[in-house]
């Protein structure tokens, strides 16, 4: 397995690379070093706008740029890009259906020591609720790089969730095709389906191995696009295994778990349990410690599976 890397790092690198291939502008709000848009800014200063600490303006400026027909990529921490500027995203971006890509880093609890004010665990719930919005949450570097290109090619608003914390790499560049709205089956299984997104995909793969050693066969699906959800794939595996555990570094309110439950509600073809951050605020600690603290790891997933299967 390759060395660990944060998805924001892969994002910054790929953005700078794609600058040659596509015409787009990049905006940041005084966090370009952290979000990694600085890599693009250095290469293409004439296509970059640092908006200062003013996220609301940044999002609406992005909308104005996009209204001229050129995509705009706006980055900040998830808390500010999506949280603070929510209404700008809704009214300036989503309602007019403009090609603004909000690439928000430092999502979830893995922000770490900064604590609850900066650990945004509700962003996907909020973005999912918006008409016209596509919500993307890549798992590692290779998937991030592929999906950054997909969202630039896509003519509409996108929210992409990126992390600060260096995570394990398991996709090999070019080996898997990443298409918006299409989930990826990473492992076949017959007893339960683990549906994961973002950095929990790696943990789900680990959990699968642990479960296998205990005689439980788990399928694993990477849902990198929370909205539109790959309902067909989710339903197929829910029906096939009868049991589903969703896992995300996000609140269990309104995120991947609720998206899956909504999709399966009508057919009620599986029992579903959500794994994620319970309806609470985060706290300060190193990211790795927090993942343990909140059970956001393979063991946490294994526990949920066993409880669900009564084993």
């Amino acid at each position: 397995m390759a060395e660990k890397e944060a998805t924001r790092v892969a994002y910054g690198r790929k953005l700078a690379e794609l600058g040659e291939k596509y015409d787009f502008y990049v905006l940041d709000a005084d966090l370009s070093g952290s979000t990694q848009t600085a890599v693009f800014a250095k290469k293409y200063p004439e296509r970059f706008f640092n908006c200062g600490i003013a996220e609301e303006n940044m999002i609406s400026v992005s909308a104005g740029i996009a209204a001229t027909g050129i995509p705009a990529i706006a980055s900040s921490f998830a808390m500010f890009a999506c949280g603070r500027a929510f209404e700008q995203i809704r009214n300036s971006v989503a309602y007019p259906n403009l090609p603004v890509k909000i690439c928000a880093s430092h999502a979830g609890v893995t922000v770490g020591e900064d604590g609850a004010t900066h650990q945004f665990c509700e962003d996907m719930a909020i973005m999912r609720a918006l008409p016209n919005m596509t919500v993307v949450c890549p798992a590692d570097s290779a998937s991030t790089e592929a999906l950054v290109e997909e969202i630039i090619k896509y003519d509409g608003p996108v929210y992409m969730r990126l992390g600060r914390y260096a995570v394990p790499q398991f996709y090999t560049k070019g080996e898997v095709e990443f298409k918006l709205g299409k989930g990826i089956v990473l492992a076949e299984g017959t007893d339960v389906t683990i549906i994961a997104t973002g950095i929990m995909v790696a943990a789900a793969m680990e959990a699968k191995e642990i479960l296998a050693s205990e005689g439980i066969s788990a399928a694993v699906i990477d849902i990198h696009t929370i909205k539109p959800l790959d309902v067909e794939l989710v339903t197929e595996y829910a029906k096939k295994t009868g049991y589903v555990v969703t896992t995300e570094e996000h609140s269990v309110v309104g995120g991947l778990g609720d998206a899956v439950i909504s999709a399966l509600a009508e057919s009620a073809c599986a029992k579903v349990v959500k794994h994620g951050i319970d309806d609470v605020f985060g706290t300060s600690a190193p990211a790795g410690v927090l993942l343990e603290h909140y059970g956001l790891n393979a063991n946490g997933i294994v526990d949920k599976v066993k409880k669900l299967l009564n084993k």
Partner: peptide, 10 residues
């Protein structure tokens, strides 16, 4: 007003 800034910036 901000969107107008974006258009002017382009």
């Amino acid at each position: 007003f901000s969107t107008a800034c974006g258009m002017a910036a382009v």
